[in-house]
Computed example of a mutant assay.
Amino acid sequence: MSVSLATGADPDSLVVSGWSAASPYGLGAAAFTEGVREGRDAVTGDDGTGGLGPYERAGRIPDFDIRAVLGRKGTRAMDRATALAVATAGLLLGEAGPGLAQDDPEAVGMVLGTGHGSVQSIMDFTRDALTGEKPFHVDPALFPNTVMNRAAGQSAIWHTLRGPNTTIAGGALTGLLALNYASRLLRQRHCEAVLCGAVEEFSADRAWLEYHSRTGGGAHRQPVGPLGEGCALMLIEPLGRARSHGRAPLATLLGSRFLAFTEPEGATRAVRRAVTEALKEADVRPEEVGLLVPSDSGGALGAREDTALGSVFGEHRPPRLRLRRLVGDTCAASASLQLAAALAVPGEGRPVLVTSVDPDGQTGAVVLRTGAA
């Protein structure tokens, strides 16, 4: 293993060397950072359009107009989720420095998480097929928006990213699973850098689907709270590559663990084990952790996550950043926004633990160290 004599850091260590976000605070890392540091509530009421479905409030990206942000060319039939991903990728690539993708497009991949893709597009297309004079009297230009990998594929095409392109769907854990997948791509030398994150759009149709899934029967019933939308993307690459391109590492990836549980009561044990094993892999003691960013899912599931974290950390009580209550439940994008929040708050050199737990029976934990490697 080659080690940098100046810092003792392995140049092959995987680092976050850039990030950006589209969130209810606005477009870009600066808007997100400001909102998170202030602890500002970005969940707002109906703006008069009546598009909140069964909810009274939601965390929506303010004044996001697809054509105004991306231009008219290529956006006539673009759905909101795709536009959010394309716009966020553009912001990240612009900040990462010139030539990231242009010099060697095959070297840069993309791993993008999503819930179902664009729920609004799927529902609209299906509705047209059922209510039209004939089932095939639909707009073919809208069909690509119904495919789950539309946002990832279009983002790569738009920004000339010709490396591996993957779509991940894993509920609330999606962002952590995407990060894990991106790390494997890099460690297996399938590419040299990856844009990694997740996206979720807000729409009335998605709001109704979430509402009915949460208020229906079953053991995994969840509290009904305001939904949100957003996209967070990080540039992941080896430390040596980041330095050679003049990018300072913002965080180093240290460890991760993912587990499943079959009954709601098993969530506490699964979270505790995932956290313990992720810390062990990262060679970090619980008392060294400087920040916790839990999924903050609320209800019984959120209480079990808190109980598990309390049992791991005991008397050591690092501050907890609870993002969901600020921006709403962003579902598939939530874990990526949690990672972005960990990068947004001050705390150079401290280990940070990000956890997520999903009512469908899976949990995950990621440990990273913020600041220079």
Rank of each mutant, 00 (worst) to 15 (best):
S2C: 12
L5A: 15
T7R: 01
G8H: 06
D12T: 12
V15A: 00
V16L: 09
W19M: 10
S20M: 03
G28N: 06
T33S: 15
R37S: 08
R37Q: 12
D41W: 06
V43T: 09
L52S: 02
G53F: 08
E56K: 14
D63P: 09
F64L: 07
R67V: 12
A68P: 06
G71E: 00
K73R: 15
G74W: 01
L84W: 06
L91C: 11
L92D: 07
G94Q: 07
G97A: 05
P98F: 09
E106W: 13
G109P: 02
T114I: 07
G115V: 02
I122D: 10
A129G: 12
L130D: 11
E133D: 15
E133F: 13
V138M: 10
T146P: 04
N149W: 09
R150M: 15
A151F: 06
G153A: 01
I157N: 01
W158A: 06
P164Q: 03
T167Q: 11
A169P: 03
T174Y: 12
G175K: 06
G175I: 06
L176F: 11
L177V: 14
L179M: 14
L185D: 01
H190W: 12
C191S: 05
V194S: 02
V194Q: 00
G197P: 03
G197T: 06
E201Y: 10
S203V: 13
D205L: 14
Y211L: 00
T215Y: 04
A219C: 04
Q222A: 13
E229G: 06
C231D: 03
L239N: 10
R241V: 13
S244R: 15
P249Y: 08
A251T: 05
A251W: 10
T252E: 15
F258L: 05
L259H: 10
A260V: 14
G266T: 01
T268R: 14
R269C: 01
R269D: 13
V271Q: 05
E287K: 14
E288D: 15
A303H: 12
V312T: 12
F313V: 11
G314E: 03
L326R: 13
D329E: 14
Q338R: 15
R350G: 11
T355V: 12
D358E: 10
A365M: 09
A365P: 09
A365W: 10
V366D: 00
L368Y: 08
R369T: 08
T370M: 00
